[in-house]
Design a protein around this nucleic acid. Structure first.
Length: 503
RNA sequence: GGGCCUGUAGCUCAGCCAGGUGGAGCGAUCGGCUCUUAACCGAUUGGUCUGGGGUUCGAAUCCCCACAGGCCCGCCA
């Protein structure tokens, strides 16, 4: 059984509510998407509803490498209250959420978004906050027991936002006069915060169980960081039971996604690929496949270089298995990888690695498609397959320009590159040039002539092919020669050969 | 110090939850397509399942103990 179905079975609800969370303190990367897609897979498997809670009311902790110096002044303020970086969004949090939500839409993820700052503003947290404050000592004891740390005597489960300096958590709470939390701020201001409004928030350890309770969360996937002993899961599950009198959700812990050779993804270290960039280099169903194909607790080593080709090949292979009615789990993985529904007919496709060559040879997309039709690689000219092909070609292009290793890249040299041909090669090329007289400039003929001339002049065949790549691409290797040559202007090729021979 | 995960073919991993004669892909090797390869087809090759105990008629799978690696433990997915 697929892991999503296994988890779905464990949830004690017919129409479960599955929660995911994101903190928009920086660019949202591939690692974050695992949380949402893990939750989404379970919601599909359980026919549940998916929500995404945005920690937009959390303060900016520090200045990140991607922020300019002016943001130092914003440290300590809630993300929802900080100006947008580019100026085009309502606030800092929205700046990072917008592209992420767009990506989720492209990935076919159907969810409701809840912003923490709006929940606080609407008073959703009022009851939970009151209970936490009234049970301050019990909550503190749970945290101390689970973490083994000792909390300060003035620890308070609710952090007011200073109404003068706007900072959160820089306050010392001096009293509670329901519904007002009385505080002294480090900036010198003394005031009170209304727990029915967005004038402060629960500390994370209490905030998390509070939201389970408020929203009635049945299941939540979360990262391994929360699951460390004494972590927020350990305290959260006790707080919801002992303070709020309810059960914690079914939990699913997932592992980190690492960038091959560079360690775990993290916005602050810069080891990250933004979600929107991911979707420029692979199709959404392939990105989904990356997540669906690994159990949440397995860590994923993501290789944006050559690994992309393996990933797509594996996706395609899984597609074959699905349409052949093979292996149940892999078929399920394929279903869950789909952005929408599974295609009605098995998609016809050009092998991905081959496509990588084709987009470098042909400038014209239609030419590629026509060749694929002519060679029988694509048997029926279907609209949906053509669209998929166009999409893949776009992704391949982006990948070639941004992530592909040099070994797979080539480009036609407009001028004769510096070459050092020996006599064998020159003799061969000369002979080849002569044999081109009256040739129809067809791929297969051009290819046959390479073999014939190589045999006649006695040159090693590999060397014969290499000589073409050297004078055309400035490399030792390249795409299949005959078809490649046939795409080029006849005069251009002839000119290049004679130039090379006489150099 | 605590926690989670991983250790299976040269490489990447599946199989473990519900124990029943070890799998896939890639690679390599060989062959084919008068077509070089990074494309395609076919075949072959491949492993004391990290080690040691235990439970069992039977263990890659369950239990215990080691060893090695990765990550997490204010906030962070």
């Amino acid at each position: 059984m697929h892991w999503a179905d296994v988890e779905a079975e464990k949830i004690d609800s017919k129409k479960p509510l599955i929660a995911t969370g994101e903190a928009p303190s920086g660019p949202i990367h591939l690692g974050h998407i695992r949380e949402v897609l893990t939750g989404e897979a379970i919601s599909r498997a359980s026919d549940g509803d998916l929500i995404l809670i945005v920690d937009s009311f959390d303060p900016l902790r520090r200045s990140y490498p991607f922020l300019d110096d002016s943001y130092v002044d914003q440290i300590g303020k809630p993300l929802s209250e900080i100006p947008c970086i580019c100026g085009e969004h309502d606030n800092y949090a929205e700046h990072f959420m917008e592209p992420f939500l767009e990506s989720l839409d492209e990935l076919g993820v159907d969810l409701k978004v809840k912003y923490a700052h709006e929940m606080y503003a609407k008073g959703d947290y009022e009851d939970a906050t009151r209970r936490m404050i009234e049970n301050r000592d019990k909550v503190a004891k749970i945290i101390e027991e689970e973490t083994g740390r000792e909390l300060d005597d003035d620890w308070f489960p609710y952090n007011p936002i200073c109404s003068r300096c706007g900072e959160i958590g820089n306050t010392a709470v001096t009293g509670f006069d329901d519904p007002y939390v009385i505080y002294d701020c480090g900036c010198g201001y003394a005031g009170k915060a209304d727990i029915r409004k967005a004038e402060g928030k629960l500390a994370w350890r209490g905030d998390w169980p509070a939201r389970w309770w408020i929203l009635g969360i049945d299941c939540e996937p979360f990262g391994k960081d929360h699951f460390a002993s004494g972590g927020s899961w350990d305290t959260g599950k006790r707080i919801i039971k002992e303070i709020l009198g309810s059960e914690p959700p079914h939990h699913v812990v997932y592992e980190w996604i690492q960038l091959k050779g560079e360690g775990p993804m993290s916005s602050s270290t810069g080891v990250a690929i933004k979600t929107e960039d991911m979707l420029k280099m692979v199709c959404p169903e392939v990105l989904r496949f990356l997540i669906m194909n690994s159990k949440p607790k397995t860590h994923i080593d993501f290789d944006p270089g050559l690994g992309i080709l393996d990933l797509v090949d594996e996706y395609d292979h899984t597609e074959d298995i699905y349409f052949e009615g093979g292996d149940e789990d892999r078929s399920r993985t394929y279903e869950l990888s789909q952005v929408e529904k599974v295609p009605e007919k098995k998609p016809q496709r050009i092998p991905y690695r081959h496509l990588v060559n084709l987009v470098q040879i042909y400038e014209d997309r239609d030419a590629i498609w026509d060749v694929a039709l002519n060679t029988g690689q694509i048997q029926e000219d279907r609209k949906e397959d053509h669209e998929r092909f166009e999409e893949r070609a776009d992704k391949v292009k982006f990948w070639l320009e941004n992530h592909a290793p040099d070994m797979v890249k080539f480009s036609l040299k407009k001028e004769l590159p510096p070459v050092d041909l020996d006599e064998d090669e020159k003799t061969f090329l000369e002979s080849y040039l002569k044999s081109l007289e009256g040739c129809g400039w067809k791929g297969e003929d051009l290819h046959r002539l390479v073999h014939e001339n190589a045999d006649e002049t006695g040159i090693n065949k590999g060397k014969a092919f290499r000589s073409f790549y050297k004078i055309l691409l400035g490399k030792d290797k390249g795409p299949r020669l005959g078809r490649f040559l046939s795409q080029l202007e006849e005069e251009f090729v002839k000119q290049r050969i004679s130039e090379a021979v006489s150099s």
